Amino acid sequence: MKKFYGTGTYVQSAGVRGDLDIDGFAIAVCDELGVELARHQSRGFEELHEYGDHLSSFDLIVALTPTSKAQAEELTRVFHLDVEYWPIDDPAGLGENRDQKLDAYRHSRDQIVNRLIARWGPPRDGV
């Protein structure tokens, strides 16, 4: 998001579980677009507060899996906060060799890029 639209909007990444390492295939295919994930820290919803964020400070949660959608809806019952569900194919476990795995991750990455563009328009120049 920051790569396409700059830092004028505060964006934070969180998932159902925050104890996972960033997948090497995800790092590789995002790097192809100039998005650096190697130093990204995975965090769960519950960890946002530890990092100085609170769900009530956000306007929108974009959930990429049914599990994250359900958890986001449960956590936001008391907040005026929109939850959008973008069903993205899970590339984990797909493909029998490195090239097939990378293609599966590229497909998921491109699904997210297409959703970003559909929601917020084409990427800004110079970002």
Rank of each mutant, 00 (worst) to 15 (best):
85 Y>K: 07
13 S>C: 11
27 I>P: 10
22 I>M: 06
52 G>N: 01
51 Y>T: 14
80 H>P: 07
53 D>Y: 15
83 V>Q: 02
83 V>L: 05
85 Y>V: 14
44 G>R: 00
30 C>V: 08
34 G>Q: 15
85 Y>M: 08
34 G>T: 11
53 D>N: 14
40 H>D: 12
29 V>I: 07
33 L>A: 04
54 H>I: 10
31 D>S: 13
29 V>L: 04
62 V>R: 10
37 L>N: 05
41 Q>R: 08
17 R>T: 01
16 V>M: 05
62 V>P: 01
50 E>C: 06
13 S>I: 12
26 A>K: 08
20 L>G: 10
15 G>N: 05
69 K>G: 11
30 C>T: 11
18 G>H: 01
47 E>S: 15
49 H>C: 02
80 H>E: 12
58 F>K: 08
75 L>I: 05
33 L>C: 06
19 D>C: 08
42 S>M: 00
68 S>T: 15
14 A>H: 01
25 F>R: 13
82 D>Y: 00
80 H>N: 03
37 L>K: 06
78 V>G: 07
24 G>V: 15
32 E>I: 00
39 R>S: 13
87 P>F: 00
24 G>F: 11
51 Y>G: 14
91 P>F: 00
64 L>C: 10
81 L>M: 09
15 G>E: 09
23 D>Y: 10
21 D>M: 01
16 V>T: 12
24 G>A: 13
25 F>E: 04
33 L>P: 04
32 E>Y: 11
41 Q>V: 11
65 T>L: 10
46 E>L: 11
72 A>S: 11
84 E>P: 08
75 L>R: 15
17 R>K: 11
40 H>N: 15
55 L>F: 07
56 S>W: 13
35 V>W: 10
23 D>I: 07
42 S>N: 11
30 C>H: 15
60 L>V: 10
22 I>C: 09
32 E>W: 03
31 D>L: 15
90 D>C: 08
79 F>Y: 07
65 T>G: 14
